[in-house]
Amino acid sequence: MMKKRLLGLASLLLFFLLAACAGNEATTPNENADTESDNHEIMDNNRGESDSNKEMDHSGMHHSGSDEVPEGLEEAENPTYPVGSKVIMHADHMPGMNGAEATVSGAFTTTVYSVTYTPTNGGEPVENHKWVVHEEIENAGAEPYKPGDEVVLNADHMEGMKGAKATIDTTEQTTVYMVDFTDKATGEKIKNHKWVTEDELSPVE
Results as ranks from 00 to 15, higher is better:
93 H>Q: 12
111 T>M: 02
57 D>E: 13
90 H>W: 14
88 I>G: 07
112 V>H: 02
86 K>D: 10
109 T>M: 14
78 N>A: 10
97 M>A: 10
107 A>D: 01
53 N>D: 14
75 E>Y: 07
68 E>H: 08
109 T>S: 15
60 G>R: 07
93 H>A: 12
104 V>T: 05
74 E>Y: 02
85 S>H: 04
60 G>Y: 09
91 A>P: 03
84 G>I: 00
55 E>D: 09
87 V>S: 00
100 A>E: 02
73 L>R: 04
67 D>W: 04
101 E>W: 08
74 E>M: 08
95 P>M: 03
104 V>Y: 01
89 M>T: 14
104 V>G: 00
97 M>V: 07
93 H>G: 14
113 Y>M: 01
105 S>L: 02
85 S>M: 03
75 E>H: 08
95 P>I: 06
111 T>F: 03
73 L>T: 03
72 G>T: 04
91 A>E: 15
73 L>H: 05
89 M>G: 11
76 A>H: 06
72 G>N: 04
87 V>Y: 00
89 M>C: 09
53 N>H: 14
55 E>I: 13
92 D>G: 12
93 H>K: 07
60 G>F: 11
109 T>C: 12
92 D>C: 12
83 V>Y: 05
104 V>R: 01
107 A>V: 03
55 E>Y: 10
89 M>L: 15
74 E>R: 08
96 G>S: 08
62 H>C: 05
97 M>S: 07
78 N>E: 10
100 A>V: 05
72 G>K: 08
80 T>S: 13
58 H>M: 12
95 P>R: 04
51 D>Q: 15
73 L>P: 02
76 A>P: 08
88 I>Y: 10
108 F>V: 04
81 Y>R: 07
49 E>S: 10
96 G>W: 14
79 P>A: 08
80 T>W: 06
101 E>K: 09
58 H>Q: 11
81 Y>W: 06
50 S>G: 10
105 S>F: 00
91 A>S: 15
80 T>H: 10
67 D>P: 03
67 D>F: 06
68 E>V: 02
108 F>Y: 15
92 D>W: 11
96 G>M: 12
65 G>A: 09
105 S>P: 00
97 M>R: 11
53 N>E: 13
99 G>W: 01
104 V>A: 01
101 E>I: 11
60 G>T: 15
81 Y>V: 05
65 G>V: 06
61 M>H: 07
105 S>H: 04
75 E>K: 09
112 V>M: 04
105 S>R: 11
80 T>A: 13
69 V>K: 08
60 G>E: 09
56 M>G: 13
60 G>D: 11
69 V>Q: 06
95 P>F: 03
104 V>S: 01
50 S>Q: 15
61 M>L: 10
49 E>M: 14
109 T>K: 13
64 S>R: 11
55 E>G: 06
83 V>S: 07
74 E>T: 08
61 M>W: 07
106 G>L: 01
51 D>K: 15
95 P>G: 00
55 E>R: 12
69 V>M: 04
84 G>D: 02
85 S>N: 01
67 D>H: 07
80 T>Q: 13
70 P>C: 05
68 E>P: 02
107 A>H: 00
74 E>V: 09
57 D>N: 15
86 K>G: 04
82 P>N: 11
100 A>M: 02
107 A>Q: 03
89 M>K: 09
105 S>K: 12
95 P>C: 02
57 D>S: 13
113 Y>P: 01
51 D>Y: 15
104 V>P: 02
52 S>G: 10
107 A>N: 00
103 T>M: 11
94 M>G: 00
102 A>C: 12
